[in-house]
Write a protein that binds this DNA or RNA. Structure first.
Lengths: 66, 66
DNA sequence: AGTTCATGCAATATATATTTTACATAATGT
DNA sequence: ACATTATGTAAAATATATATTGCATGAACT
């Protein structure tokens, strides 16, 4: 599923996909694919994204689907 | 780094590494390596582990290292 | 209309997570 | 002493995340 929360957090910080990619040390495509929900990033990358966007794992990557 | 929080959560539930592995659909070795901090699981696997142990991502995988 | 900017989206290549199999060890019970 | 149980660990094989390159598109601007 698409990660809309991550996209919103990025836009709140006025960052392009490419900006975020550069900060966390991956390519623009990787960020785009994660936001599009096309895969399944590593924990390390998730944490790097959270720190770059000033959020926690739960805030960006946790879904309350019982 | 070792994931001691995950190990504690597993033991609180009285599960062996193998039990947890079976619930989340990976091998015992994968669980052991994650607890040992020898790698870097995927987000999907982290979420499966959290749900199996009744915890959230922040509770098991977030480190407050400023 | 043309140009730049941000993003979407493929194909192939590379790095790495995960599996499989197997053996070692420490702890516990008989 | 022996067997069993839970875990650590390692090598090779496989699956998949990520990089790289390149092209397409829609929005905003001149």
């Amino acid at each position: 599923m698409k990660n809309i929360k991550m996209k919103i957090a990025r836009i709140e910080r006025d960052m392009k996909q490419e900006d975020l990619a550069q900060v966390v040390g991956v390519t623009r495509q990787t960020i785009g694919l994660i936001e599009a929900g096309k895969y399944n990033p590593s924990l390390k990358l998730c944490i790097a994204i959270c720190k770059a966007l000033g959020k926690t794992l739960d805030e960006l990557f946790w879904e309350e689907t019982p």
